[in-house]
Simulated assay, not measured.
Amino acid sequence: MRVDIKRGDEFVSYDVEQSDITLLEILSHIKTKQDSTLAFSSGCRSSVCGSCAMRVNGKEVLACAYKLQDGDLIEPLRNAPVLRDLVVDMDKAYAFNKVARAWGIPTSDNLHVSVKDAELNELQSDCILCGSCYSACPVYAVNGEFIGPFALTRSWKYAADVRQKDISATIAAVQTNGIYDCTLCNECVLVCPQGIAPKQDIVMLRNKSGMMGYMDPNFASSFGGGLSF
């Protein structure tokens, strides 16, 4: 079985005898048996830490969960600087959590959460920050400051939390380079290993923004910069 791995500006081919094996196991085999200079990231090996996210044949996957096929093309995640081989620098991507104010401050007088209320943001809590949605997002081709799918999902997680008395700062934070810059293309949904739908979370943030008096700037500009009734 042959696997082609992008290293720098070119693909390097490796022949391996193993079959019915995960991509991470193959990468480990190559590094220990064939080429000790190969660089990649891994951690839990159980699809929990998200550190082994990369692209296979143009789609984001977790290497510890993907079963390798003959002739697969392996690349690092997109939209992030490549440090070496399949290792990328996610510092800027993770910093968007701060831009989006993706945290909560529960009030001491409202700590009880019913089962129904907990279900409002239960799925968003499963995000492992693997960066797959960030890599798949086409918006970064035109706007490198886009807050991005996983940060906006985390914003909605806290905006939907009934323990939050005031979410105005969170909603205000996602207006610029945020919810209205998303094209709702669904690429982030297709690659999330946790089954999270960032697109839906962004739609919910748009709905909440509208309720709080915000408007899509693209819509407003089509009326000469503002609306009057």
Rank of each mutant, 00 (worst) to 15 (best):
G104Q: 14
C137N: 06
Y14D: 11
I147L: 13
A80P: 00
L23D: 05
D85Q: 09
Q18H: 11
F219I: 15
L24V: 05
G8Y: 09
P76Q: 10
L184P: 00
K92S: 15
R45M: 06
A160N: 11
A102V: 01
K31G: 01
G8N: 14
L111S: 07
S168F: 01
E60P: 07
A172I: 04
V16Q: 08
F40G: 07
L62Y: 02
A80C: 10
P217Q: 11
L111Q: 15
L120Y: 10
R206M: 12
C185T: 06
T153L: 14
S28Y: 00
S28H: 03
R84D: 13
E75D: 13
L83Q: 14
A172T: 12
Q200G: 03
D166F: 08
C52H: 04
I171H: 06
S13D: 12
A159G: 02
D85C: 03
G8F: 05
L227F: 14
P193G: 06
Q194V: 07
Q124Y: 10
K208M: 13
P76H: 06
G131E: 05
W156H: 13
V115K: 10
S222T: 15
L68Y: 03
S19P: 00
D126S: 13
A169D: 14
A151C: 08
V12W: 04
M215W: 02
P193F: 02
N79D: 08
V61W: 02
D161A: 03
Q69M: 01
W156M: 12
L73V: 05
A80E: 10
T37G: 02
G43S: 15
S132D: 00
G225A: 08
V162Q: 06
D35Y: 07
I167C: 09
S209F: 03
S135W: 10
A65G: 01
A160M: 09
C182W: 09
S155Q: 13
G213Y: 09
D201W: 00
K116R: 12
S222I: 12
R2C: 02
D216V: 14
G226I: 08
A141S: 14
V203Y: 02
K165D: 15
